[in-house]
Each structure stands twice: as C-alpha cells, then as structure tokens.
C-alpha cells in the first residue's frame, strides 16, 4: 500500500529563480501607499494557489497553504487575541530566521479566528486534502513574554483555551487534519504534564479532526515515552535534526500515527531517492505502513524554492516506490 506523504507547514515564498516575486513587491508597494489591502490579499491568494499546486504536482497527499500569509507562526494568532501586543525580533530556534515575540499585557481572550479564512481558501482550491496548523500552547507561552499572569501554568492554559477555540472553528470549517506545533517542548521536559493538559484543552473540543503533535529541530528523547500519552492521534518527529528520534518512535503505541520528517528542510543537499526508500521501509517495519506518513523534517521555508520542490518530489517518489 502507498505510504502517505505530507508537509510540516511553511513553504518558500520567493518564486522560482527569474520569475516575478509578486508578494514581495506588493508588500513594498503597500508600505509606500502604492498598493491596497485587497492587492495584498490577491497576492497572498495567488501564492497560496501556486504553493498548493506545487505540492500536489510533487505528489504530496496532505498539503498546507505554505503559511504564505504569515511572518511567523505566532504573530497571526497573537494578533487575534486580546491581551497581546507584538514585540521585537528574536531568533527562531537555531535558525537564521526571526519571529516577533508576543508580549502578554492583559487577560487573554479570543478575538475571532486567526487562520480560518486562509484555511477555507486553501481547501476551496486544493484537489488534495489540506492540513491546518496551529502553534502549541507551551511553545507559544515559552516564546512569548508574560507580563500579566506571572504564573507559567495559568499563562499556558489561557493560551490553550484560545487555541482550542481556533481549532474548533477550523474543524467546523472542514479541517480533517489539525497539526499542533510544539517545537519548544523539546527543550522543556519540565513542561510535559502541563503540555498534556493544555493539549487536552484543545483536542477535547474536536470531534472529527485528526490531530498531530509536531516537534522539530531536535530530539524528543528527553521527553520520554510519557509523550505518547498525549491526547492526539499522532506525532511528528524530525529525524534529521533529532537522530535519536529513531529510537523514540520504537515506543510509539500501535494506535498512534507517525509523521516522520526524513528529508532535511534546512539544508540544500538533496537526499538520494534510494536512501529515502530504505528509510521509509525501515520506518514502515517499525510502526506499520498504515500508521506512517513521511514529510520533510520541518517547514520548507528555510530552503530556496527550487530545492524545496525537488525535495518534495524525491520524498513522494520514494514513498510511491515503497508502496508499489
């Protein structure tokens, strides 16, 4: 049977070398007052369409809109929560990529959906299935500044209640797959119990959507097998930056799914398809082909467009070969 393929989330915004970079130009024009918000929306939609078609052409089974509207994974959500203002730039984990730090200055409340319109648009144009992605509450809290709650647990749970509302709205809008990104959990094993409680706040609101807890940029070994007690349908691991994750997945309970990040989303060197085939076969022998989905190791935005595309092509070719 065919091995399913997916992506982790983001996709390069720049065009193929030599083509027009419309989004960048539109944003520049907007800042000069030479373009309107509706021009920006058109540029976002055109790019989302391109990114979805590109993933589909590469043969990816479950796609995202590439997060083409987002500067980072936190800001769009923080902007839709009362209680947050947007702070300065900080490094996004160990990448030469930056995010704006949300600063909590008052009680956190939901102010309407942050990602639902973008999801609906993606779903309306995609031929394949579309995954919604939201930040995890622990990652959100740890990368933000809390100037209001002064209690980490209270802060995390307040964020999780808003994200639960977002997830509920995504499901209502037709999301079959919701991925919750918790990369910061890898460096915060002390937050494991809190994270489980916070994730429960989100997933207990959902009836039909299949949920995945995603970590990337490192090993989940420090979290121990208790991670697998989280109330989600599956787990995503980065097998490139976290080689120990190969051991971690051996503990995966049979009823849980694995999303295995096996092509390097942070380096341009192309993986050999034969190597990917062998790796997928090994993974399938551990967790079973039915429970396995393969993906890049993280969002693909760290790569130039051509490299991201080439990596997806090889990933899905390898997955097809294993399945045939």
């Amino acid at each position: 049977m065919a091995i399913e393929t997916t992506v982790v989330g983001s996709y390069p915004k720049p065009p193929t070398e030599g083509e027009q970079f419309t989004l960048r130009k539109t944003l520049h024009a907007l800042s000069r007052g030479d373009a309107s918000e509706s021009d920006l929306r058109a540029a976002h939609e055109a790019l989302a369409r391109e990114v979805i078609e590109e993933q589909e052409a590469a043969g990816i089974g479950i796609v995202t809109d590439g997060h083409v509207r987002w500067d980072d994974i936190l800001t769009p959500f923080a902007r839709h929560m009362a209680g947050f203002e947007i702070g300065g730039l900080l490094r996004w984990f160990d990448n030469n990529v930056y995010y704006r730090r949300p600063i909590c200055i008052g009680p956190i409340e939901w102010r309407g959906p942050a990602s639902v319109d973008a999801f609906k648009f993606a779903k309306s144009i995609a031929k394949s299935r579309v995954k919604a992605v939201i930040p995890g509450p622990v990652t959100f809290a740890r990368l933000a500044v809390d100037e209001h709650y002064s209690d980490h647990q209270e802060f995390v749970l307040a964020i999780s209640r808003v994200l639960a509302q977002e997830a509920f709205e995504l499901e209502a809008a037709g999301a079959e797959f919701i991925q919750i990104d918790e990369p910061a959990l890898l460096e915060a094993p002390e937050d494991l119990d809190l994270a489980r409680e916070a994730i429960y706040v989100i997933t207990s609101e959902l009836k039909t959507a299949e949920t995945t807890l995603a970590t990337y940029f490192g090993d989940a070994k420090r979290l121990g097998p208790e991670l697998f007690e989280f109330p989600v349908a599956g787990f995503a691991f980065d097998l490139i930056s976290g080689p120990e994750n190969m051991q971690v997945i051996k503990e995966l309970p049979p009823e849980k799914r694995l999303q295995a990040g096996i092509v390097d989303a942070r380096n341009t060197r192309l993986e050999a398809t034969d190597d990917l085939v062998r790796e997928i076969e090994e993974l399938a022998s551990i967790v079973g082909a039915k429970s396995l989905r393969v993906s890049p190791s993280a969002g693909l935005e760290f790569l130039p467009r051509e490299k991201a595309r080439a990596k997806l092509q090889r990933l899905s070719e390898a997955a097809r070969r294993v399945g045939s």
């Binding site: 970079f21 960048r24 500067d71 990529v97 341009t268 790569l303 467009r305």
Partner: peptide, 17 residues
C-alpha cells in the same frame, strides 16, 4: 551564492552554499 530565503517579514537574503 544560493537562492532567496526569508529572514523575517518581507526581508530575504541569498543564502550561500
């Protein structure tokens, strides 16, 4: 010199290889 990658917002750079 490689292709364009984003550093933040609307800022991009050519990341060497």
């Amino acid at each position: 010199i490689g292709g364009l990658v984003r550093s933040y917002g609307n800022r991009y750079y050519r990341k060497p290889i």
